[in-house]
Design a protein around this nucleic acid. Structure first.
Lengths: 199, 199
DNA sequence: GTCTATATGATGATAGAC
DNA sequence: GTCTATCATCATATAGAC
């Protein structure tokens, strides 16, 4: 066999990483399959041995991005308040918004996904719900009562803020929006150590 | 003159309304100029006497949507807490998310705008900042100290929630997300009547 | 101002050589 | 499995008749 299945798997991962990067940066419609493949050091025609369509690539790319996200890679086994605050700070930062670091597909593709087929939307929803559930589990460990609700609130605030910040353009407005959201989240979280929530 | 300038203005408004509707529903890239014109009861070729390019139509459409938004049309001259809560309820509702009522471009085009040229991004930013400022003015009238900050928090929460809800697909998840955000905003606002903010 | 017709280019996807 | 070459389609934008 001239090509090992490991080789195929590596090519596939290169395509997925390329797709995540380009889709987040320029949007799904504005990135062609040819560009994705070029960025992955392959040619246009080779694409279709790995994915049946561009839309299915999108669905897989969202999963790939989630798997390799900061949350899944740097989260300690038990999440402390300090660690969560660090994650929030990194997320609500100018380098994240301006793509100097890995992009979160939940924020960068939020409204884009709404226009795609059900497979893509389900992929997005799965990532969102898994993450919300992961955070809720940690919050429960801290004794938070309405953990699912609070987890959703934290996530929507983070994702919404980054989404909007990207569309504002100038970095001064972006920084103001990010700092404001960070302060609000931090004071929300500080309340947890002082008093029981949902009490 | 066979066509009055009023007629031209009406045609232009039909095109803008059509563009807002279709862009919010399907996304900028997935809507062609031909479709926009067809929806406005005109032909493709007539487009270019009204707008120089599709991108400039986008920038104008965002302004048009803001001008005809629920906020600009139904906001009473002096905003009461009750009226604000009603606006939030309408915004964070399933009919809004599923496009049974007029769509807010800030939420529906949030990540889409980030990939466009500076003219489009400036148009979006202008609408966001104007709205944030309008709300801040009302909050100041209520005696809120950190009015700008709170206004931004309310807006990002609303826009972020609707953006994400649209990508989740199933209406049960959407309703949960919307209700949760509404409750959080309402308790945030309830705090205003009991105690001074930023004190 | 609006129409029909068209120039020009890019895209998603396929066919077949290696 | 990856390549080159190609098909079929659809996009933006323009030209010219009415």
């Amino acid at each position: 066999m001239p090509y090992s299945s490991e080789h195929k798997s590596q090519s596939r991962n290169r395509i997925l990483a390329s797709a995540v990067d380009l889709f987040c940066r320029y949007g799904f419609d504005q990135v062609s399959i040819g560009e994705v493949m070029k960025h992955a050091k392959m040619t246009h025609g080779a694409f279709y041995t790995h994915f049946k369509s561009k839309s299915l690539l999108y669905a897989q790319a969202i999963q790939h991005a989630a798997k390799h996200s900061l949350w899944n890679k740097e989260k300690p086994s038990v999440l402390t308040l300090t660690a969560l605050k660090q994650l929030i700070s990194a997320y609500l930062s100018l380098p994240h918004v301006t793509q100097k670091q890995a992009s979160c597909p939940l924020a960068f593709l939020a409204t884009d996904v709404a226009h795609r087929d059900e497979v893509v939307r389900n992929s997005y929803a799965k990532v969102f719900q898994n993450l919300a559930q992961s955070i809720a589990v940690e919050l429960k460990n801290w004794g938070v009562k309405n953990a699912e609700s609070l987890s959703q609130q934290i996530l929507t605030s983070m994702i919404g803020t980054v989404s909007i910040a990207r569309s504002l353009g100038d970095e001064t407005s972006q920084q103001l929006l990010l700092d404001n959201a960070k302060n609000n989240l931090f004071s929300l979280l500080s309340g947890l150590s002082n008093k029981p929530v949902d009490g």
